[in-house]
């Protein structure tokens, strides 16, 4: 029984990281129909930012202060990077075919990976644990604070995002632009600003994801974002790409699937199962669990 609950906690921790990353994918897709393949690599940059702060400031400042700076710095870097990439690489292609945008995104992804490799080397960097407060016991079971905090932080982030999108003016603008750019513009919404904002928010979530990722796996490497990004993409598609609750649902579902597969001793098949889910979803329910079926008008 403790094993089952332990596995469930593992699934929730893994799932919440996927969910945070999937949210970024989904929001960006929702607003400009772009699969932002560089999204996973933004997490990689965030992880390196955390590593940089944690290892360079720890001799001057107490641990708590360094950890706090690392969190803020990573999120800030990710936000700026996300918005910056949108301005430099995607904004000039606003009226270009969607395929060009997709190819650009792949290019940005490779650019970030190779740049990280050039600056930091190909090997992994060990990130000191930001949540270094051990674990607590529930009955006979050990639960690490890392897992608990990961779950809490992601739930809070998702709640805040939902409120933001539903209740604020900027959130309304985002929804309007994703419905119809032209009409939104006629209503006095600045689509460029709104799109930048969406990228910034998605990337800030990726920044939070990168911190939580580092807490769980404690390493930053140039290619860490690609597999994470792909799995989060599967999560977004499973939940229904473009849908915020769908991304969360998809993230947790993928986390659960991976944990389930590993816990029964098939860990080697983990990736295969995740991508099998993608194929099955695309065949039987391409719009995803919570996605809206759009009718293409000719």
């Amino acid at each position: 029984m403790t094993t089952v609950i332990g596995q469930l906690i593992n699934a929730l921790q893994l799932g919440s990281i996927y969910a945070l990353v999937a949210l970024g994918y989904s929001m960006v897709y929702g607003i400009i129909s772009l699969l932002n393949f560089a999204h996973g690599d933004i997490i990689m940059v965030g992880a390196y930012a955390a590593w940089f702060i944690m290892t360079s400031l720890n001799s001057f400042l107490p641990f708590g202060a360094v950890a706090a700076i690392a969190v803020v710095f990573s999120i800030l870097i990710c936000t700026l990077l996300g918005a910056g990439i949108e301005k430099v690489a995607y904004a000039p292609l606003r009226s270009a075919p969607r395929l060009s945008l997709l190819i650009t995104a792949i290019g940005v992804s490779y650019f970030l990976e190779n740049m990280a490799q050039m600056i930091f080397g190909a090997g992994a960097k060990s990130v000191p644990n930001i949540i270094s407060i051990g674990s607590f016991h529930v009955g006979k079971m050990t639960v690490s604070w890392t897992s608990a905090i990961t779950l809490i932080v992601s739930v809070i982030s998702m709640a805040v995002l939902t409120v933001f999108v539903k209740k604020t003016k900027m959130g309304k603008a985002m929804r309007a632009v994703s419905e119809d750019v032209g009409t939104a513009q006629l209503m006095g919404i600045n689509p460029n600003k709104t799109i930048s904002l969406t990228f910034a928010i998605g990337s800030a979530l990726a920044g939070i994801g990168s911190i939580l990722y580092c807490c769980a796996y404690a390493q930053a490497s140039p290619t860490m974002g690609s597999m994470l990004g792909l799995k989060a993409f599967v999560a977004a598609v499973l939940g229904g790409i473009g849908s915020i609750p769908g991304a969360v649902l998809g993230g947790f579902a993928i986390g659960l699937a991976e944990t389930l597969v590993s816990s029964v001793g098939l860990s080697v098949w983990k990736d295969a199962i995740v991508f099998a889910i993608l194929i099955i979803v695309l065949i039987f329910k391409p719009a995803g669990i919570l996605g809206k079926k759009k009718i293409e008008k000719v």
Binding site: T2, T3, G6, Q7, N10, Q13, L14, T142, A216, Y217, Q219, M224, E258, T259, S262, S263, G265, S267, K270
Partner: peptide
């Protein structure tokens, strides 16, 4: 792979 918690939870 970076997540080994499932296997390790089974070990516990």
């Amino acid at each position: 792979d970076v997540d080994f918690k499932s296997q390790l939870t089974n070990f516990v």
